[in-house]
Amino acid sequence: MINFEEELKRFQPIPEVNQAEDAIYSNDLKDISDIVFQVTEEMKSASEDVANRMVGRVRR
């Protein structure tokens, strides 16, 4: 049996025309290339950290 209250929760207000800009900004999702780019940047910074630590140890 349909639970009206539960079903009503599925319906959300729709954006009006003056809220279209917000809809555009909120719609900018991440794709595979963004994720790969993020992962490579993290790996790059991690490797730089390791290199800096190594250099610090050598200097000491």
């Binding site: 729709i14 954006p15 009006e16 025309v17 279209a20 809809a23 555009i24 719609n27």
Partner: peptide, 9 residues
């Protein structure tokens, strides 16, 4: 509005 946002992007 959703259509507009997709086309603008």
């Amino acid at each position: 509005v959703n259509a507009l946002s997709q086309w603008v992007m």
